[in-house]
Design a protein around this nucleic acid. Structure first.
Lengths: 223, 223
DNA sequence: GTCTATAATGAGATAGAC
DNA sequence: GTCTATCTCATTATAGAC
C-alpha cells in the first residue's frame, strides 16, 4: 500500500511546485527572446528565475529541450485563439472576406505581443527568432504549421483562381510583416523619425489585403 | 632612412596578404550567417579560414568588431547598386512608378542573395539576422538606414498624400518580405508543399505595389 | 524537489618567438 | 604577418547530500 502510494505520487504530474517550473520557463522565455538561444546561458536563466542552476536542468532537461518547451507552451493557446476567431467568423454567415480571415490570424497575435504584458511581448520576439532560423525548423513545423495550413486552405477557398503557391507566398509575406511589427517595429520609427503610436495592426491588414488581392486575384501564370 | 622605410611600410594599407583578411571575413560571414553571432566561435572561423586563432584576432580585432566588418564590407557595394539603379530610373525620364522604385531597392539584393554565389546568399541571411535583432541597431543604422531614407524620400514624393509614417510602415513591410525570401523562403515550400522555383521576386513586387497603393494612396488619418 | 560541489569542455583574448 | 603556447573565465551537465 505504501508502495502504491509512492507509485501514485510518482505518476502525479506535480504538486504546487510546478510553479517553480513556470518561473523557470518565464525566465527562459525572457532571456531567449532578448539574446537568442546561444546568447543565453542556463546560468542567466537560473539567476533570473531565482533558482539554482541544477534546478533548471532538472525541470527543463538539456538546453534545447528547455527552448522547445518555452516555444510550445504558448503555441497551443495561440492556435486556439486563432482557430476560434476563424470559426466564429465562419459561423457568422456573412463578412467572410480575405481581410477578415487575415485578421483572425494576425490580431490574436498582435493584440498580445504589442499591447499586452511582457511575457507575450517576449514570446512574440521569440517566434520571430524561431521563424527566421532554419535551425528551429522542426519546432516551427510542430507548433505553427498546422494552424497556418488551415488558414491557407481557407484563403484558397476564398480565392479559387489562385494557385497554392501564390497563396502561400502571400501568406509568408504577411507573416513576415506581422513578425516585423513585434520584433523590429523600432525600424519604422528609425526610418520615419516619428514616434506616433499608430494603428500598426490596421496598416498591416490594409497592406496585406491589397497584396493578396493583387497576387491571388488575377491570372494563372502556368500552362 | 631605414626608419622612414619602416614608417612607410607601416602606413601602407597592406601587401598581398590582405587576401588572408578576406579569407577570414569570408569564413566569418559564412558562419555568422549560419549560426548567428553567439553561435559562432572565433575558433570555428579560424578553422574554416585555415588560419590560426590569433590571426583572426589580429585582423578582425574583438569579435564584435569582426562582425561589424563583415556586415559593412558588402554594404557599400549594395547601396551603390541600389542608388545607381534609382538614378538610372530617374534619368530615364519616364516609368518612374512606385513599383519601379521598389524594384531598384529589392532586385539588386534578391538577384544576388537568391541566384548568385554562396557569399551573397550568406550575406542575405546575415542581414535578415541583423535586422531582426535590436542589439545590432547601430550597425544597421550605419550601413542601411541612409539608403533606405533615400528611397522613402523618393516614394514620399511619388505619393504626396501619404504621411511619412505610412510610407515608412509600408517600407518596413516590404523589407521584411524581402528578407523573408532570402532567409526563410523554405517556409513557402513548407506551407505550399510545392517545390516550384517561381518568380518570387516578382510576386513580392506585385504584393508590395498593391500594398503601398492601399496604405499610401488614400485618406489622411489624422487631424 | 532542492541544494552544493565539481566535472569536463570550450570560449575570447594576449604575449612573445620567428 | 604568422605561429605556438597559455591565461582566464564561462559554459553545460551531472553526482550525490539533504
Amino acid at each position: 500500500m505504501a508502495k502504491a502510494e509512492v507509485a501514485i505520487r510518482r505518476r502525479a504530474p506535480s504538486k504546487k511546485s510546478l510553479e517553480t517550473k513556470a518561473r523557470i520557463l518565464d525566465a527562459a522565455e525572457t532571456l531567449f527572446a532578448r539574446r537568442g538561444f546561444d546568447g543565453t546561458s542556463v546560468r542567466d536563466i537560473a539567476k533570473l528565475a531565482g533558482v539554482q542552476v541544477a534546478l533548471v536542468h532538472h525541470h527543463g532537461g538539456p538546453k534545447e529541450d528547455l527552448f522547445h518547451q518555452v516555444i510550445s507552451r504558448r503555441a497551443k493557446p495561440l492556435s486556439d485563439l486563432r482557430l476560434t476567431a476563424l470559426e466564429s467568423l465562419k459561423s457568422a454567415g456573412e463578412g467572410l472576406t480575405v481581410r477578415a480571415v487575415l485578421a483572425c490570424f494576425v490580431e490574436p497575435f498582435l493584440d498580445r505581443t504589442l499591447k499586452d504584458e511582457a511575457p507575450w511581448r517576449a514570446y512574440g520576439r521569440l517566434i520571430a527568432l524561431v521563424s527566421a532560423d532554419e535551425r528551429w525548423r522542426e519546432i516551427a513545423a510542430d507548433c505553427f504549421d498546422p494552424t497556418a495550413a488551415v488558414f491557407v486552405d481557407e484563403l484558397s477557398e476564398l480565392m479559387p483562381e489562385a494557385t497554392r503557391l501564390q497563396v502561400s507566398s502571400a501568406f509568408v509575406f504577411m507573416v513576415s510583416g506581422m513578425l516585423a511589427l513585434t520584433a523590429s517595429s523600432w525600424r519604422i520609427g528609425a526610418v520615419a523619425q516619428s514616434d506616433d503610436a499608430a494603428d500598426l495592426s490596421g496598416t498591416l491588414l490594409d497592406f496585406c489585403e491589397a497584396g493578396f488581392s493583387s497576387v491571388c486575384g488575377g491570372a494563372n501564370p502556368s500552362a
